[in-house]
Write a protein that binds this DNA or RNA. Structure first.
Lengths: 218, 218
DNA sequence: AAACAAGTTGACAATTTGGTCAACTTTTTT
DNA sequence: AAAAAAGTTGACCAAATTGTCAACTTGTTT
């Protein structure tokens, strides 16, 4: 009897098993991210998630055992993406080029993942009580590592002396802002909507301003 | 009969009338600001406000008729302070000095009003649905006015060409960040707590970075 | 096609929550 | 000191909300 056939069938079964489940879990997580990102854990009603995902509430509970579990799942989804853009800060690149690439990547990431970015902000606002310890540890390590890169650049005279902590805060905050304050910024600054071109010019403004400030004077 | 005495008495009465009320309303607003700033309108339970303010729930409802009314009151409290720091941006000052003063003032304001600043962020996250129309209008006017000042500086050759919109976003976001992300930043950047000295050095870093980038090259 | 597993659903119970109220105490006025 | 006004309180109600479940439908395996 074909063990090959068996395993093929088994595989087909597994895929099928997972198809519906995967699709619905995704639906739920997407809807949950959207609502959690605006209202936080306590402010979100499971009914809202159910409605937005198009599933009846009972069905949501078929996949997740509680609201908090959904929330944790959205947070877990978030964590990996945190340091994607950070890769650009590497010691073997030229500071100006690396920092510019980082700013661009981070802004692009915020633009493409507005809800996730807002969710992250909201989780922080609430005191980051659901950010797992290992995620914090990971962030700490990555940050320390990249701070070292900056310090090395400064030591090599390639970058004006700067406290990496505050530089990171400037860059994080600026990119964060575009996701979080989009509505307000559009209102107060009297622009219609922040389009891709605005993000480009934002990246340019930030890069130019920061880089001019940080390149060593000769 | 002494009308002087009458008015003195009346005054005493008015003061007394207002003493208890004013004290309790303040207690409630302070507690509400703290909790709203973390959990938003929907995420906040009136019981939490009551407990934190030290008053029984029934008493809270003696002063406010609904949760939303408390929320609106906290928002109203907030609005006036929004453009305090903005005063520094005035056409008759030198750009470098004025912008530096603005950054300092805005950071100092965030440091002294962390809960209010967070509340503002949270209100924005939720879509600014409770920000009154006149408040939006006011923000729009002030922003446009200050953008004009920047443009005039650029036109006079006192400032490198810059899009005021993105510059404002950089400055707003950096100052906002210190209130909102304090907990996370402390964690990720491995500092204990952001102290006054950190805010000073933040102000210095932002000023130097931004100003170096914006002063015209000769 | 029969048996089984996976997924769907609305009705339902238990708890929480926003808000009310009548009885009560304290403060102010006359 | 008596009356009136302001403030306090916990018990209470109706609505909302979380989470459960048994009956049901759909998909999969043999």
């Amino acid at each position: 009897m074909a063990s090959a056939e068996k395993s093929r069938k088994q595989l087909a079964t597994d895929n099928a098993d997972e198809r519906i489940r995967a699709r619905n879990v995704l639906k739920i997580l997407k809807a949950a991210t959207e609502i959690f990102s605006r209202k936080g854990l306590d402010g979100t009603r499971i009914n809202e998630i159910a409605e937005l995902s198009g599933l009846p509430k009972g069905n949501v509970y078929y996949y997740f055992s509680s609201k908090e579990e959904i929330y944790k799942a959205t947070i877990a989804h978030l964590i990996n993406s945190w340091d994607q853009a950070f890769r650009h800060i590497s010691a073997d690149r030229e500071p100006a080029e690396a920092i510019e690439a980082y700013i661009k990547a981070k802004l692009e990431h915020a633009r493409r993942n507005i809800a996730e970015t807002r969710l992250f902000a909201n989780e922080i606002l609430q005191g980051a009580e659901h950010l797992p310890a290992d995620a914090r540890q990971h962030m700490r390590e990555v940050t320390a590592e990249k701070a070292e890169v900056l310090n090395a650049w400064v030591a090599a005279g390639k970058l004006a002396p700067v406290d990496p902590r505050h530089l990171f805060i400037m860059l994080w905050s600026a990119t964060q802002f575009y996701a979080e304050f989009e509505a307000l910024a559009c209102d107060a600054l009297q622009v219609g909507q922040l389009k891709a071109s605005d993000y480009s010019s934002a990246a340019r403004t930030i890069s130019e301003t920061v880089l001019n400030g940080l390149m060593p004077r000769m």
